[in-house]
């Protein structure tokens, strides 16, 4: 019997997970989030909040870093995925673009892109078609296709990393800190492409960002992480307007809002939310 896919059910859910590194370092202390099909969801938070750890828990790259999900569960398209290898997840359409891009430095840009198609079995013509598509989204990569990735600029490497992920024909991209170390204009360019991919290719994004400002402009929904806990979540628009978020993450101090009382108010709120 054919089962009808429930379009309203979230594509990806993380249910109250705990992550421990090296058997001792507790980093995530019960994180829950859900990503709707076709959404752009942002995980926000300062250095060390646990954003990367959350993404790696989903893509299961955690194990290679001696990290482990010790509690909770993660589902993708309705199936529990904690025990799937990264390679199996990529085959199912969930791929991570790692923080710091991690291009293969000695491979050319085009070879980098082609490694993204490693798990595919649908033949050379389909792969070449997707390569051309990636080049239309990132015309700059086409210009640099024969250059060794190690010698391209940071922006080009970020594009290469995203393009490489696209070559696996993903439904979901876990995008970690795409703005890292890039000039504001380039950051804008990259997010613009993310939005296009979302709108035109239907790719769902879960992205981790320290740059709250830009992330909330492009995302539909946001989670704010602090010391391994979600302290706040809501529609991007709501979060953008929230006074605490403004003050602590957007760096916009409202008139006279920097007072000690407000900070205390925030802390109390934070504890309560946690």
């Amino acid at each position: 019997m054919l089962q009808k896919v429930d379009d309203t059910a979230p594509l990806l859910t993380v249910n109250n997970i705990e992550v421990i590194y090296n058997h001792v370092i507790l980093v995530l202390k019960g994180v829950s989030l859900s990503v709707p099909r076709g959404g752009i969801v942002a995980i926000l938070g300062a250095n060390g909040a646990g954003k990367t750890t959350t993404l790696k828990a989903i893509s299961n790259l955690l194990r290679a870093e001696r990290g482990e999900v010790t509690k909770g569960s993660i589902t993708f398209e309705g199936d529990e995925i904690q025990n799937l290898s990264p390679s199996e997840l990529v085959k199912r359409g969930c791929i991570q673009v790692m923080e710091g891009r991690h291009c293969f430095g000695h491979l050319t840009i085009e070879e980098n892109l082609m490694t993204g198609a490693f798990t595919r079995t649908d033949g050379r013509t389909a792969i070449n078609r997707d390569l051309e598509k990636v080049y239309t989204y990132f015309p700059r990569l086409k210009e640099r296709r024969k250059s060794q990735a190690g010698y391209t600029s940071g922006g080009e490497q970020q594009m290469c990393a995203i393009g490489r992920a696209l070559m696996s024909r993903p439904t979901t991209i876990l995008l970690d800190e795409p703005s890292m170390g890039l000039a504001p204009q380039l950051v804008e360019e990259i997010f613009e492409i993310v939005r296009n991919l979302n709108a035109q290719e239907g790719v769902t994004f879960l992205l981790a960002e320290q740059n709250t400002n830009i992330a909330l402009r492009y995302a539909t929904y946001g989670y704010i992480l602090e010391s391994g806990r979600v302290v706040m979540d809501g529609d991007a628009k709501e979060l953008r307007e929230n006074e605490d978020v403004k003050e602590f993450y957007l760096g916009i101090a409202g008139e006279g809002r920097k007072s000690f009382r407000d900070v205390k108010h925030y802390k109390r709120r934070k504890r309560w939310l946690a």
Partner: peptide
């Protein structure tokens, strides 16, 4: 070859190789 390319990718950055689904 695709396998050869994957070998070079692993040599360059095995974490990234893992992330694109190379076993």
């Amino acid at each position: 070859t695709a396998t050869g390319r994957a070998l070079r990718a692993v040599a360059d950055d095995h974490q990234a190789a893992l992330s694109v689904g190379i076993s």
